[in-house]
Design a binder for these strands. Sequence first.
DNA 1: CTATAATTTCAGTAATTACTGAAATATCAA
DNA 2: TTGATATTTCAGTAATTACTGAAATTATAG
Lengths: 187, 187
Amino acid sequence: MNLTPLVQSFVLHFGEMGSRWGINRTVGQIYALLFVSERPLNADEIAEALAFSRSNVSMGLKELDSWRLVRLQHLPGDRREYFSAPEDVWAIFRTLADERRKREIDPTLSMLRDAILVSPENPEDRFAQERMRAMHELIETVTDWFTDVQKLDEQTLRKLMKLGAAAQKVLEFTGKLGLGGSHERSS
Amino acid sequence: MNLTPLVQSFVLHFGEMGSRWGINRTVGQIYALLFVSERPLNADEIAEALAFSRSNVSMGLKELDSWRLVRLQHLPGDRREYFSAPEDVWAIFRTLADERRKREIDPTLSMLRDAILVSPENPEDRFAQERMRAMHELIETVTDWFTDVQKLDEQTLRKLMKLGAAAQKVLEFTGKLGLGGSHERSS
DNA sequence: CTATAATTTCAGTAATTACTGAAATATCAA
DNA sequence: TTGATATTTCAGTAATTACTGAAATTATAG
């Protein structure tokens, strides 16, 4: 298993990029390799291709698995485990969004909700709570909306997005009509 | 400057959360403190409140500045620099989205564009390019769409999002009518 | 079962990133 | 200007995170 220059550079880019958000280089590279690989790979193949230790690959795959970004399968007559990245990029996008929401948004929303509930002891807290309330409302609105959008099937989603700004004109109009949506608040 | 328990816990949460994506604890805490502070703070006040060294605060503020997340101002009769977080949470959201796109998406799109252009030397590359093409198309569609949505003013955006799933029904219908949007591809 | 192959765990170490204090630089009032 | 105050830089160190190799565990073919 040695990589073509094209795949090499894709893998390296993903490794670097990974570290810009929370994911480590190794994990990024493993995912990139699986993503562009036509057939599933076993851990030894990955370790050899990327020059990582076998144990490092094992940990990386475990991490990718916890993000639900890899699929595990067995090949007939072979005891080893083979890994692949799901092909449907829209499905991958959904998975990633779900997982990030769960890990990065939900805990914050929960903390904010609690913080807003306690009655303020002093002016600082009163002000801080007002800020937290605004942040909570924004995050909740955006994520709820995004969750709704995400529920659409690929075709509709694609169509919606390709409509782009034009779609907003329609909606602006709808809004003016006072058509209430599922998340309309009574405030 | 000592923090109330409420502010304390908000600040700590933000510090921990920060490290889930690429931002370090210190930077997260500084931002959180500024966010809930009623008046602008100078670097010494921040250092004292969070028990960081003065130089660490300086670096943190520089980082936040590069993300355009803090505003620098001067108070009359005081030479020191005072920092605050903009109040408008929707504006903050926009800034964050813009900055992350610039740092995390654009370089990847650019790499993918280049990778797709070279003519494949072998079957591996042919397959890899097809995968990259799919990834490129997805990212471009989503970010272009998101950019359009972001251009809307706060009121419209809020209205659009609160409409939630209901909005999609309208759009689905519009789509069926074959109404082409600004991003409709000819393919 | 037993032997062998595959995978995971984990303690130790390497590499990276975060943080500090001191020194250098910049800013401004007098 | 000059002196005092504010801010940044940066080399050294601390803390954290990543990675490895060896040992332990798990799985399966015979």
